Amino acid sequence: MKLPHLASLNGILDTLPTIPKLPTLQRTRKTSKIIGFLDKNTSNFHEQLPLQTTRRTALALASIALVGTSSNGISLAEDNGYWITDLLSVPSVENKDITNPETGTRSFIKTGVYVANLNTKNRMYRLKKYAFDLPAMADLIGPDTLNYVKKYLRLKSTVMYYDFDKLISAAAVDDKQPLITLANRLFDSFEKVKDVGSSKMRNFPQTESCYRDTKVILQEVMDRMA
């Protein structure tokens, strides 16, 4: 026995049009193409055969590319020749006359810094540019900002150190000694600023005074590199 309200409901359902079935969509899997970068010469870039990979394989390849393999294996980055996977080597210094006689180096030198190998003209421009930038840091010397000033000064002075070394090597015989004298005055001043601004001494008035003396030498560098 059907209830009256159910009977009316069945009648309504019978009058509704049938929903047509949509055609089945077939998804095609796109193949991935791996571009090889095994040669430093860009003219030798080559395209390998299409490679079909699953989601798991793709994730595995991506993770290897990002983090590399273990220290005992060979990472992919070491095979292409386009970037360095180890620590940057310390550039060699040809002119020992610009080092500190007591230590044989300079205390402000920061290792692991990439220094672009430029020609003589561009090295002079970079020295002039850095000498122009550094005097502005004198206004930032204070209890809360001294560490940032020291880090910035150390980075810039490291590049200037290697630039002076290359300029001296490329200079004419009569120009070498004036460049050596100017470089030593600048680097001695850099080391003095670093020492008085160290965490042990933390002498802000003396640091400001040393930096003012450094600004005078930086102006001489700008004039020399003009």
Rank of each mutant, 00 (worst) to 15 (best):
Y82F: 15
A116F: 05
F132P: 00
S75F: 02
E47D: 11
P205Q: 03
I84V: 13
G142R: 02
L153G: 05
L13H: 04
S209L: 12
I141N: 08
E102C: 01
K33Y: 14
P205A: 06
I19H: 07
M137W: 14
P4Q: 09
V221A: 03
A183M: 06
A131Q: 06
V221C: 06
S71E: 13
Q26F: 11
N41H: 09
R106V: 07
R56T: 12
D39L: 10
F45W: 11
D86L: 08
K21F: 04
Y130P: 00
L61H: 03
A183Q: 04
Q206G: 02
T207W: 00
T24W: 01
P135M: 03
A116Y: 06
L186E: 01
L16F: 09
K128S: 14
D213K: 12
K150Y: 08
I141F: 03
L218G: 05
H46L: 14
P91L: 04
K176T: 00
D39R: 12
H46G: 11
R212P: 01
K110Q: 15
V221H: 02
P205D: 05
K215S: 13
T53K: 07
K30W: 08
T53M: 15
N203P: 03
K176D: 02
N122Y: 10
A116T: 13
V196R: 04
A77K: 10
Y161F: 15
S70G: 13
T54V: 01
N10Q: 12
Q177L: 11
A65N: 09
V221I: 12
V113R: 11
S63Y: 12
H5C: 02
S32G: 07
I217D: 04
K110H: 08
T145Y: 03
R126W: 02
M124H: 06
K166Y: 09
V216H: 03
L134P: 00
L167N: 13
M225P: 04
L51W: 06
K200F: 09
L127W: 01
T42W: 13
M137R: 10
F108I: 00
L59P: 00
V90T: 15
L66A: 11
A65Y: 10
L88S: 10
L127P: 01
P101R: 01
K96S: 14
D188S: 04
L88P: 07
V93G: 03
L186F: 08
R224V: 11
T120E: 15
D39F: 12
R27E: 12
P17I: 02
I98W: 01
Y125D: 12
L38M: 11
S157I: 06
D144R: 09
L167A: 05
T69A: 10
K192H: 09
G142N: 14
S75Y: 01
V216Q: 10
